[in-house]
């Protein structure tokens, strides 16, 4: 029976879909059978991030409305064995689904998979509630910025009251250089205020944009800091004890660059 995990954040644009795609691909690489479900009805993007947009025929609303069978709507990723996408409908709205239908859909998927990852829309309204309804566990994505951490706090409260457990935090787009220079919230600053377990820190990485352009999740092939971070998160989901990456080493900056920054700063 599959574990059902919702990826959510409250705030938009913090990396929910990228995280879902990369963790799904990583879990599949570790030999698990995984389906990534795009629960963002009307604004679907998981298909594009995974590079499967040309293979979408049906979507999960078609399954709910019995237009097609579940197996017809599942898109099999041919690059990694065991990886599937269940797309959202693009021409429908969030209220085309009810929480009960979402739960029923997850129940139908459970016997077929090891992991069901639900990519949740931004916001705290119906779309979030639908996606969260079907899940047992939750991953909350935040960036090291006040608006994003604030919204994460709100979402964590809602997930707790819905009884989701465990709820774990992904800190995304951290810039070790800026943390070291005292210009960005550090991992511990965020954990201090959110009081929630951390499952991984993903450093800011240009390869995220490259992989989105290419339609290939980084964890499929790329060896990059963000890819490594997502592979580690997948391993931790599997219960393995993986130490946090040494992000400080990405921040090592010489005396010269500090000198440069110092003189740049002085001109202001």
């Amino acid at each position: 029976m599959a574990r059902v995990i919702v990826t959510t954040s409250g705030k938009g644009g913090v990396g929910k879909t990228t995280s879902t795609a990369n963790i799904a691909a990583a879990l599949a690489r570790f030999g698990k059978k995984v389906v990534a479900v795009d629960a963002d009805v009307g604004l679907r993007n998981l298909d594009v991030i995974m590079g499967l947009e040309n293979r979408v025929v049906y979507n999960f609303i078609d399954v709910i409305e019995k237009v097609c069978k579940l197996n017809q709507a599942l898109v099999k990723d041919k690059r990694v064995p065991g990886l599937y996408l269940l797309p959202a409908a693009q021409t429908r709205t969030k209220d085309a689904v009810t929480p009960e239908q979402m739960i029923a859909l997850c129940e139908e998927l459970k016997p077929e998979f090891d992991f069901i990852l639900l990519d949740c829309p931004a916001g705290i309204e119906g779309g979030f509630k639908n996606a969260a309804a079907g899940a047992d566990e939750a991953l909350v994505v935040t960036t090291p910025e006040i608006p994003s951490v604030r919204d994460a706090d709100r979402i964590i409260g809602m997930l707790e009251s819905m009884g989701k457990s465990p709820i774990r935090l992904i800190i995304n787009r951290l810039r070790p250089n800026m943390v070291q220079d005292g210009d960005m919230l550090a991992k511990d600053d965020i954990l201090d205020v959110l009081s929630i377990d951390l499952i991984g820190v993903v450093p800011e990485d240009e390869n995220v944009i490259r992989s989105t352009n290419n339609g290939e999740p980084m964890t499929m092939s790329l060896d990059s800091p963000a890819a490594q971070a997502y592979l580690n998160i997948a391993e931790r989901l599997l219960g393995r004890d993986v130490p946090l990456m040494d992000l400080e080493s990405y921040a090592t900056r010489g005396f010269l660059s500090r000198l440069k920054k110092f003189f740049k700063g002085k001109k202001k």
Binding site: I146, R150, D153, G182, M184, L185, A186, D189, V193
Partner: peptide, 26 residues
């Protein structure tokens, strides 16, 4: 600043503001 020590950037201010916002939100 030249030798890269100290925490005089905006990080501390961000953390203080975040704490206060959360006290009120919660």
């Amino acid at each position: 600043r030249l030798f890269g020590s100290g925490n005089e950037g905006s990080r501390g201010k961000a953390k203080d503001r975040l704490k206060i916002v959360l006290i009120h939100d919660r």
